[in-house]
Amino acid sequence: MASKKHSRFIDWVNGDTAEKVHEYKFIQKTVPPHSEQAHDEVISTRKARLFNISYEISAVLVCVILVAVLLFTVFNLPLFGSAGNPASNEVAERYLEKGLEETGAVNAVAGMILDYRAFDTFGESSVLFIAVGCVMILLMRDKNNISATEDSLEENERLIEIETNDPILQKIVLLIVPCIFLFGIYVILNGHLSPGGGFSGGAIMGAGLILFAVSFGIDAMQSFFSIKTFKAITTTALMCYATLKAYSFFMGANGLETGIPLGTPGAILSSGLILVLDICVGLIVACTMYGFYSLFARGDI
């Protein structure tokens, strides 16, 4: 009655009657090298204990004084929610009144961060790129920073991943991941029309990538997203952003026409460069999020 395709599932349902082959094979206790004895040594001397107590008292005092000063300042701020707040000055007014005709973006925040202040957003993307580079320097496994025990642990984890194929998890993930990606793409492409944009949409897509990697394992993930893809996508997106914005800044600063049509406000293909820049930022953020996960989980992408 059990067809071959479902035999695994039936085995899983039957549970206890099925033979458990690999039950305790992979359990490995890791003991931190010298934690216990170090802890005793830290607080051994009387001088160190005195220093600790005085440090704690002064830390609490500093913190209480800081909070008191800040609370006193808060009560002297302009009233919360008032229109006369000095933060809402002529700059904000200009962004709101002229933004639609100058940038073509319905979402004033997107118009601000990807047109008026696009250089700032380029800095943000570069910060993400540099952060993932730094994490790579620190955690990437190569022949210089890998020991034999770590190597065997890694091999163990790979074996566990191959052995444990959870059918329920994988079926659900196959249903959910396309929806997550669709939503992420929607948020990115509608960044100039509604709340959202490159950063939030990229984070959603990165979450989808992480979910897929968690449930299907490294090998399935690396069949379409390896370190080569990662490098190609992030560098291309960043270069694309830099080139496009440099062109638009150069032409704008010299008073020339950029020749980029703004389109009708509210249409999906409108607002000039903002849509393209949103896609670039979204790709960088999605790859970076997955890169962080992957580097922390197993020191490789």
Binding site: E93, L96, E97, N107, P195
Partner: peptide, 12 residues
């Protein structure tokens, strides 16, 4: 600040 109506700064 999703400018769908009039672009008047006192609305957003």
């Amino acid at each position: 600040p999703i400018i769908t109506g009039a672009n008047d700064a006192s609305l957003y």
